[in-house]
Amino acid sequence: MNVFRLLGDISHLLAIIILLLKIWKTRSCAGISGRSQVLFAVVYTARYLDLFTSYISAYNSIMKLVFLAASYGTIYLMFIKFKASYDHNHDTFRIEFLILPCVLLSLLINHEFSPLEILWTFSIYLESVAILPQLFMVSKTGEAESITSHYLFALGSYRALYILNWIYRYYAESHYDVIAIVAGIVQTVLYCDFFYLYITKGIYGQ
């Protein structure tokens, strides 16, 4: 563990908590892409199956459970409890165009052709594009509530911090994982446009 990865995990946790609070407090999921949230639940489910097979640390196991619980909790709030506030009309990104290529790519490019490793690779590829429906929705509505933009900023920062973690681990532990690094760079680059808007003029209330 290093400070970059710890800050990244905290930023990730913060993003998920901000989102849950936003939906719970405002009792509305307006402006939030349910499709992206479904993709995140798929990402964590596919990636954290090793909860049952390999123990890394208490921190690792607890965080995996928290991320799984929070992502399914968000889906419950969006599609069941506050389903009336879900903005179907603007959440239209075709997620099958994200899932299928990730499935194919994970079968072609992976570290080991085993079920758990393929699922992990699929989750890495899918996570890198999982935010697209949300970014697409924000661009369609032309704005985002300030709380939603803070959510996106924290979520985008998490993987940017992980890139610093990978640089650190390469030099300090000569450990690197090309698949995670390339996907993490793609994921962070997708936020660049949003980061620019968030930092220059706070995209809410445009």
Partner: peptide
């Protein structure tokens, strides 16, 4: 190549 199989990151 790094020691695969064990992904210690979230």
């Amino acid at each position: 190549d790094p020691d695969q199989g064990l992904h210690d990151e979230l």
